[in-house]
Design a protein around this nucleic acid. Structure first.
Lengths: 187, 187
DNA sequence: ATAATATCTGACCGATCGGTCAGTATCTGT
DNA sequence: ACAGATACTGACCGATCGGTCAGATATTAT
């Protein structure tokens, strides 16, 4: 139907798996059955296409973070937050994988910079004030690990699992991973 | 001193952070204060340079895996294995980050294929036979999360931590993450 | 029917890519 | 001193990159 939307999705898949620098406009055009010029007609440049591909996910992450920052981070709210965040991870796994792994090398792209800022803000709000080294490590492993797992499931053996089961499993795992955050170590 | 070794290390850093496709031979040569031709004199091609950069890590991973596969995976051995594996992750964080994140897009490079195989073998031996979805997810999060965290620590706030403290913290985290593997769920 | 607009193509541009090659220092063993 | 590696440079090659542009085709509005 919509060529522009097709291109957005194809570009997202290619950028996420092969990398932004490793994906040519020609390859995206081929996958969509169009010419390179058609891609540049819909999106004025490769960078604009990247922006269009991941902007919706960044926008949603920003709204999640806005709600997180405006709510006291009680234990019961942490559960609700994790529910919403895991949903976000499942829907936008490719986008998250993109700016997690390629964020450092794409700092000059505005939408990537926004994403990097959001991740930093997320880290400071999920970890406690004066977070210990282990707390920051737990956060990083949870985020980077989930992003990797959700995009590597095909190369491992877990593609056929029902989504609901995978979601509850991920919530369980992340809850356990982040549980020691905010409690004094040694308790 | 040794230009070849300098180039190996520089290439590893560049490939890991900017990506293999996103790193030109010229950039590596510049960082080493040499010409592009000098790089191609020491390493006949870009792919040979990539091979040289990560082969030592792959070799060590293979020996770790060989020991793992020749030893019954008892609870006490799991602890010793995690010790050794965390050491490996700290020393070869860049290489691990490379073939974890860029492995799927570099399948045609033999040394990367070897690495992908090793990861698969590692997964089947760390998770129990007939591993559940959650077990496989735990393994993937542990591996991908550790690889991400160890390379993202600069962009987060934990670069100044003493190495020993970080290592014991990572062992603690991974032990907790992988603990439910092999035990019947619901206990 | 026709004018306008949206969609798309192929030819082309300069820049950069990985890689080759001839030639030049530099160092080393005799 | 000199012959032979070793280390390196700059010029060059074809291919591919992102991007521009003129024009063809299809769609829509009047």
């Amino acid at each position: 139907m919509s060529s522009a939307n097709d291109l957005r999705e194809i570009a997202l898949i290619e950028f996420s798996t092969t990398g932004y620098a490793g994906t040519s406009i020609h390859k995206i055009a081929d996958a969509a059955g169009l010419s390179k010029s058609a891609v540049l007609y819909h999106f004025g440049s490769k960078e604009i296409l990247l922006d269009a591909a991941i902007r919706p996910a960044i926008d949603e992450l920003e709204s999640i973070l806005a709600e997180l920052e405006s709510t006291p981070f009680t234990t019961e709210f942490r559960g609700a937050f994790l529910d919403r965040f895991v949903d976000f991870l499942f829907v936008h796994r490719l986008e998250v994988n993109m700016f997690i792994n390629q964020g450092p090398s794409l700092v000059d792209v505005p939408v990537i910079d926004r994403a990097n800022d959001l991740v930093r803000r997320l880290a400071t709000h999920v970890t406690s004030t004066m977070a210990s080294v282990e707390e920051e490590m737990r956060f990083a492993i949870a985020l980077g690990g989930a992003a990797y797992m959700l995009c590597a499931e095909h190369s491992l053996g877990l593609e056929a699992a029902p989504i609901g089961e995978a979601k509850t499993a991920l919530i369980t795992i992340l809850t356990g991973l982040l549980a020691p955050i905010g409690v004094r170590q040694g308790d």
